[in-house]
Computed example of a mutant assay.
Amino acid sequence: MPRVLLLHTGGTLGMAGGRPSALRPAAFFKTLKSRAPELFRLADIELELFSNLDSSEMQPELWSRMAAHLHHRLPHFDGAVVTHGTDTLAYTASALSFMLRNPPCPVVLTGSQRPLGEIRSDARLNLIDAVLSALQGPREVTICFDSHLYRGNRTRKVKVAEYDAFDSPNCPVLGTLGVDATFEPGLKPRGAFRLFEKLDSRVFLLKVYPGLDPALPLQLLPHVRGLVLEAYGAGNFPIAPELGRSLMPLFLQARERGVPVVVVSQAYRNGVDLSLYESGAEALAAGAMGGSDMTPSAALVKLMQGLAYHPSSPEALARFIQTPIAGELTVGRPTVPPPAPQRRRPARRVRAE
């Protein structure tokens, strides 16, 4: 039989309790063998306990340890399944996609909205689909949930209380597991299987909103190495000085301090184009980088890795951010600042809504 590594990290799937008591981590492997014995008919499954945490406790240090462990173990298996809580599942999938380059077999993350031990749990089917995806799916880091297989670094959690909890707005699904299971080829391997486990977690994710006082993020700059800005639409934010809420001082001071800024969109579909509107053009002139159609979670983790491996080269960091590493962005969008800052304010471009 094919061999599959099942690495348990925690999450709702392996919890016990529930209304009226709170859910809590529980003994997972015993429940797995009694509630989902079909798994062991699909493959020779080796169970390993990495952690037993609520996914809100997942941190970059654990991603590095997990990636190093998987790098050591994957060559001995035909596929791997990582069970994980849903709240930070997209972050972990993004991290593993950047850390495990050209994996020798599929790495599939899954979880559930209800614990495996409950009657109406979605955990059993998610586990079966994940194991099947680990055997037949593409050789990349993916998320399997509600009979769909998504590229891990393209995925967002979109629902809390429904079983179709994830979506991949800017990337087609890689697999559909209905009556038949069909899979797309996925990413083509580009070289040997390599581990890039280093991260610099001194980054901040800032969401633009009406009323944001620029003084608040300005106070953060001395304490961070990088900044991801969730802007409006195509990469817009306030710049009118007369209203006292312009964010341009943030970009200018970030450039002076050597703090890279990556701009992504709050919109679920499409991505930023910093050349389209005046605020984005001024951000480009101040050295900001457009994050194309990356999700905020993917952009955040990618910036962590870029800072760890390119700590003193803004040019190398910019190339790293704009280049697809694991299918996380669509090429062809303006993502890199111009060679020299523009001193003149560019003409305002207006697009019909």
Rank of each mutant, 00 (worst) to 15 (best):
T86A: 04
P241L: 10
M1D: 02
K198N: 14
S246T: 11
E57F: 14
A68K: 13
E46M: 09
R344P: 07
L53N: 06
R349H: 14
R65K: 15
G271C: 00
S64A: 15
P334S: 08
Y209F: 13
A192V: 12
G244H: 04
R351F: 15
L74W: 05
L247R: 11
E46V: 11
T110N: 00
P341R: 05
P189H: 09
A308Y: 07
A27F: 10
A308G: 05
R24C: 13
L199S: 07
G235M: 02
F204G: 00
S64T: 15
P338I: 14
V203H: 01
L53V: 07
Q136T: 14
A267T: 15
A267V: 13
D213E: 08
S121A: 08
P138Y: 00
P334K: 03
L89S: 11
P210W: 02
R269H: 12
P341C: 02
H310S: 02
P324Q: 10
R73T: 07
L149Q: 00
N236D: 15
F237K: 06
N52G: 05
P249M: 00
L187W: 03
P337C: 12
G137T: 06
K159T: 14
V108T: 07
L252D: 11
A80E: 03
F251T: 11
P104D: 03
L7W: 00
V208D: 00
R225L: 12
V228Q: 06
L317R: 06
T335R: 04
E118R: 11
V264I: 02
R269Q: 09
S121T: 07
L70R: 01
P314L: 07
R269I: 15
V203S: 04
S56Y: 03
H223V: 00
Y91M: 10
S97D: 09
P238A: 05
M289D: 02
E46C: 15
P241M: 11
N102D: 13
V81N: 00
D167W: 04
R333Q: 15
V107H: 08
E197L: 10
S275L: 14
E38Q: 15
N236F: 13
N126C: 14
A80H: 00
G14M: 01
I321R: 09
E38K: 09
R255Q: 14
A181M: 10
D213H: 07
F251Q: 10
V224W: 01
P311L: 04
A285V: 03
I45A: 05
Q266F: 10
S97N: 14
S279L: 00
M66Y: 05
D129G: 02
G233E: 05
A283P: 00
R73P: 04
